Amino acid sequence: MSSFPEVGAKAPAFSLTRDGGGTVSLKDFKGRKLVVYFYPKADTPGCTKEAIAFNGLKAEFAAADTDILGVSADAVKAQDKFRDKYSLGFALGSDPDKAMLEAYGVWVEKSMYGRKYMGIERATVLIGRDGKVAKTWPKVKVDGHAAEVLKAAQELG
């Protein structure tokens, strides 16, 4: 199991099936900045709030030459439904085999009511134009997070 990527490290490569049935890969964003945010489950309260926040700042992210990619283990069909329900205007990657989630260190043991289980740690990684990790946010709290990531993307230049 990998650990969360360190700032300055080369971002782990990935290729995922995405909403709409195409694929999305790290190489698709070469020369651009990329926000990869990991969320536990489509259409749950915290994940919906986070997606809506990123979507609401989509124009500002675009102005900062920064793309957004949401990633969860949900099936593409669930991602499509989530995208359509909230009119999300960015790619949603599906990682049911957890390869990318493990490479980024966000597939972790969690605990609820004393029960241990594996799940996705809500986290975000900002990847620079050079393909290296520019900033990380492990264990994200949703409120104000998208705006904080936008600020970092703008400052990255």
Score class of each variant (00 low, 15 high):
T136V: 15
V140C: 02
I127K: 10
S111R: 13
K98P: 12
K116F: 13
K132Y: 03
P96T: 02
S111V: 04
K132R: 14
D97R: 05
V125P: 10
Y117F: 13
L101W: 04
V140G: 05
G144T: 01
R115Q: 14
L101E: 03
A99V: 15
V106R: 06
A123F: 07
M100H: 15
G131V: 03
H145N: 01
R129Y: 11
E102K: 15
V108G: 11
H145A: 01
A123C: 14
P96A: 05
K98R: 15
G128S: 12
K141R: 14
G128Q: 09
G128N: 10
V108R: 03
D130H: 06
V140I: 03
S111Q: 14
R122D: 07
G131K: 13
D97N: 15
K135M: 08
W137I: 02
G128W: 07
I127N: 08
D143L: 00
D97K: 13
K110E: 00
E102A: 09
D95T: 04
G144R: 03
Y113I: 08
A99W: 15
V108S: 06
D97P: 12
K110S: 02
A123N: 12
M118V: 12
I127T: 07
G105N: 08
K116L: 14
L126F: 10
D143N: 09
R122G: 04
M100L: 15
L126E: 07
G131A: 10
S111T: 14
R122S: 07
V140P: 01
P96Q: 05
D97M: 07
K110M: 02
K110Q: 01
T124I: 03
G144P: 03
G131I: 11
V133K: 07
K110L: 02
D130S: 13
I120K: 02
I120R: 02
D97T: 13
W107G: 09
G105M: 06
L126P: 14
G114H: 10
G114W: 14
R122M: 11
D143K: 10
V142T: 09
V108F: 01
T136R: 08
G105Y: 04
V142F: 00
K141N: 06
K98Y: 15
K132Q: 12
M118S: 13
V106P: 05
T136Y: 10
L126K: 08
M100K: 13
E109W: 01
M100P: 14
G119I: 12
T136N: 07
K132T: 13
L126N: 10
T124R: 11
K141A: 06
V108P: 01
I127C: 11
M118L: 15
G114T: 08
L126G: 05
Y104P: 05
G144F: 03
M112Y: 09
A103L: 06
H145R: 04
R129Q: 15
D95F: 03
Y117S: 02
V108N: 08
K135A: 12
V108H: 04
P138L: 11
A134M: 06
Y104V: 05
V108E: 08
G105V: 06
V140Y: 00
V125D: 08
E121S: 03
M112A: 14
